[in-house]
Design a protein around this nucleic acid. Structure first.
Length: 826
DNA sequence: TATTCCCCGCCAGGGT
């Protein structure tokens, strides 16, 4: 380290110590590594001082070199700080300004995000601040300025905050491309990532720092491990607790004492409608919470959410029921307890949520788990096992998504244009596009210039123009539309919900409002509302004094069970088979395990249990791989396909995280299918493509790809296209490509994304390999077992009215209940 | 009586 650096480091350490902020060891390590010219990844739990760690290297470097002060001719920009959340940008702006003031550094730190004011924008367009805090999307927008390179020429370092959140997403790839662009004009640019705990941290670092030579890469781990205490609410009479379902409101009473004795509580649920139901349930239990409790999820209006976040931060709210929308973001130091309703479905997710309480160095996080059905207690045990053994989910980097590249080419063309060979070299310096072939590059370039082979007649798709030296954009219409569409998040169009007088409450789906008539009531944002009319893409409502049980439901992904959780689940069932119940949750389940053992069996880790059962609904085959519902969906269709190839037979099916059921009107040829390769992994891709209605899935996925690549324009602000229009035009492109341009790489990409991300073909292969080397146990049973129960309920939901369903569920549960009670009694 | 369906982002020049 240079002498001037050493002196400056000493001086700042003392300054911090004097103001009561004795630096942590990992912070000092980060500063030293920075000053020695290294790039790196800082891994630290939330609330342990990552911001200061990443900030001080560039600050010391600048303050100890007199020359740096002279390079401010065009722009004083020193540091770009990339964050995935606008709310975080706001928070960082405040805390970094405070730190700079404490350290007496004459820098400005300013955010630039989609919610920046126009005066901020105008000012920044003339001159960027010393520290620019921004999102991957806003950074891309800035790269589309024709004179962007003048603004960024003085840049010295980039910090990528919450890198674990961006890794493995198209937003992350967009950030990689932007970083490569900036490195193109400042080759000496320094790069640091900040990450929470995830599975493959070295892989995470490798992806971000792919351009940094190995000896110059440093990983720094904050040694302060966060203490977490996890408790479960265990239902008094386990056998009378629901055996299926996911809402869990019947335990809301048990949650009240926790809320009462805590300063502030966050209640996490898995779906948006569930937050609304839990809010009402808690309010009914404790009316005094009115005014001190809020609902927070992705369909609540932004301004309302901002208000909630502010009041959480200041400790004015006692409780907030939320979805993943509060998984990360602003530090809420008042939160001292977290409640998780239902299975978190992943180890890292539970850790992240627990970490929202006790959010300061040295404090303990407290989390209480509320199960919604009996088997979720096993899942919580699985999470605890995962935490104990360090089985954390990985984030797999994406490989060359061509839609993101197409968008980037137009952005770069707007930003002063490009010379193809140079840009190709730059793009290949990112982890995502290292393996980009010449053919793929040419195809994307041609796609941006002519719209590919089938759209040559449409000028809107001739976005790039070759001027003999460079590719540029000449049409101002194309330029404007492109800047409006920068980004990789594709959301469904929704209907705004507004009071007749006053503000917007949130958004609901078109189809939900479509089913309602004026006068109908529903709940949103914790309020009971009455629909007045639907007009102008807006549902106008007024407050209602009545009650309702109607909750909007939003389309969204169902949280998939991670493979780490699957592994832990199998291991827990294995132990239960051998009589070991290693946690309070598992012990509570003893009567249920006993019923499963007596009526059928508890499968060990190397066993594959198949239960066969016939009743008036048909022939049932229950398979239990314990690999999560997403994967079971694929396996169910694959098995049905492979059996129906042997003889004509049709199946209906249902699946959950533990297994799946196939039901047929005639006996299924199970044994014959096993002999002829039911579990074979070899011809998997072909069979899956043949068996799944992949074209519907591909169409949906293609809409995302087409939007990102710039084929679909969502409309100008305030005049968004309705989602059915977009799906219609997306389908049109899909049909045209399929017919006239089947080798279209965007089409192939949509298929690949379906296979890899949705069907997890890679994992399916591994699962089949495991199953085929397991001992398959086929049992013929007279009645449904505890494991089968949830699948049967799910199966019936499709056909039966909800009243009859409840009756049938009660009837089905009775024998199980009696058996379990007998076991517990005796 | 019980409903399964996370999250995140995005313009700008010419007119009052």
């Amino acid at each position: 380290m240079k002498r001037c650096h050493r002196l400056a480091l000493e001086e700042f350490s003392q300054l911090l110590a004097r103001s009561g902020k004795e630096p942590f060891a990992f912070q000092k390590q980060t500063w030293r590594a920075y000053l020695q010219g290294e790039d790196g990844l800082v891994h630290a739990p939330p609330g342990t001082g990552k911001t200061l760690a990443a900030l001080l290297g560039p600050v010391i470097d600048w303050s100890s070199s007199g020359a740096a002060r002279a390079t401010q001719a065009q722009s004083p920009l020193q540091l770009v700080w990339i964050t995935p959340l606008r709310a975080l940008a706001t928070d960082l702006e405040r805390s970094i300004c405070q730190l700079l003031a404490d350290l007496r550094i004459p820098w400005r730190a300013e955010k630039r995000t989609g919610d920046s004011t126009s005066s901020q924008r105008t000012r920044q367009r003339a001159r960027l601040p010393e520290i620019l805090i921004t999102t991957p999307e806003s950074l891309s927008v800035m790269l589309s300025w024709p004179d962007w390179s003048k603004h960024f020429a003085s840049l010295r370092a980039i910090v990528v905050d919450e890198w674990h959140e961006l890794l493995g997403t198209k937003r992350g790839v967009q950030a990689e491309l932007a970083i490569a662009r900036l490195k193109g004009i400042v080759p000496s640019l320094r790069l640091w990532g900040l990450s929470a705990t995830i599975g493959d941290l070295d892989g995470a670092m490798q992806t971000l720092l792919v351009g940094t030579p190995l000896p110059k890469r440093r990983r720094i781990d904050a040694k302060q491990s966060k203490k977490i205490e996890i408790h479960s609410i265990i239902p008094q009479q386990i056998e009378r607790f629901p055996w299926a379902g996911h809402l869990g409101v019947r335990l809301s009473r048990e949650v009240i004492p926790i809320i009462e004795r805590s300063q502030t509580t966050l209640v996490f649920t898995n779906t948006r409608s569930q937050t609304e139901l839990w809010y009402q349930a808690l309010l009914a239990e404790l009316p005094a919470l009115a005014g001190q409790m809020a609902v927070h999820h992705g369909s609540i209006d932004r301004s309302l959410r901002a208000w909630i976040e502010e009041n959480l931060q200041s400790g004015k709210l006692k409780c907030c029921v939320c979805t993943s929308s509060l998984d990360l973001g602003v530090d809420f130091s008042a939160v001292d307890h977290v409640i998780q309703v239902g299975s978190p479905k992943g180890v890292a997710r539970l850790l992240q949520r627990a970490g929202r309480s006790g959010h300061a160095p040295g404090q303990t996080s407290h989390l209480t788990f509320v199960p919604t059905n009996v088997l979720e207690l096993v899942e919580l045990s699985a999470v605890k096992m995962g935490i104990e053994k360090g089985w954390l989910e990985d984030r797999c980097p994406l490989e060359k998504p061509l839609d993101v590249l197409a968008q980037h080419l137009v952005t770069v063309a707007l930003g002063g244009g490009f010379e193809p060979a140079a840009l190709l070299a730059e793009v290949r310096r990112t982890a995502a596009y290292q393996q980009l072939s010449d053919e793929e590059w040419k195809w994307v370039l041609d796609f941006c210039q002519h719209g590919g082979s089938s759209l040559a007649a449409y000028p809107d798709y001739h976005r790039l123009v070759w001027d003999g030296l460079r590719y540029t954009v000449s049409s101002s219409r194309i330029a404007r539309r492109h800047r409006l569409s920068i980004g990789t998040i594709v959301a469904d169009a929704m209907i705004a919900v507004r009071y007749r007088k006053g503000g917007q409450l949130g958004m609901v789906e078109e189809s939900f409002v479509g089913k309602m008539k004026p006068g109908d009531r529903f709940m949103l944002a914790g309020k009971i509302l009455e629909l007045v009319k639907v007009h102008d893409n807006t549902a106008w409502v007024k407050k209602s004094r009545g009650t309702t049980t109607t909750v909007p439901q939003w389309m969204g992904g169902r949280l998939p069970l991670s493979s780490q959780m699957s592994h832990a689940l199998r291991s827990l069932f294995h132990d239960a088979r051998d009589g070991t119940l290693a946690s309070a949750e598992m012990e509570a389940l003893a009567p249920i395990f006993e019923v499963q053992r007596e009526w059928s069996m508890i499968p060990g880790a190397r066993q594959f249990l198949v239960e066969r059962l016939q009743n008036r609904d048909g022939y049932h085959l229950f398979f239990y791989p314990f690999d999560g519902r997403l994967l079971h969906e694929g396996l169910a269709v694959l098995f049905a396909y492979r059996m129906s190839r042997l003889e004509p037979i049709s199946f209906s099916m249902a699946m959950n995280d533990y297994g799946f059921v196939l039901v047929s009107p005639t006996p299924p040829p199970l044994e014959k299918a096993i002999e002829s390769g039911l579990l074979e992994a070899g011809p998997l891709t072909v069979d899956v493509l043949n068996s799944l209605s992949t074209s519907q899935m591909c169409r949906r996925q293609f809409r995302e790809v087409a939007r990102i690549a710039g084929l679909l324009f969502e409309g100008y602000p305030g005049a968004r296209q309705p989602s059915r229009h977009l799906q219609a035009s997306s389908n049109l492109f899909y049909d045209v490509f399929e017919k006239y341009d089947p080798e279209n790489l965007l089409l192939l990409q949509a298929q690949r994304e379906v296979l890899q991300s949705q069907l997890e073909i890679q994992r399916m292969r591994q699962v089949l390999e495991r199953l085929s080397t397991s001992q398959m146990v086929i049992l013929d049973l007279p009645r449904a077992t505890p494991l089968a129960f949830g699948l049967l309920v799910d199966k019936m939901r499709d056909r039966v009215s909800s009243e009859k369903l409840a009756d049938r569920i009660r009837r089905m549960q009775q024998p199980l209940q009696r058996a379990a009670e007998k076991i517990e009694g005796g």
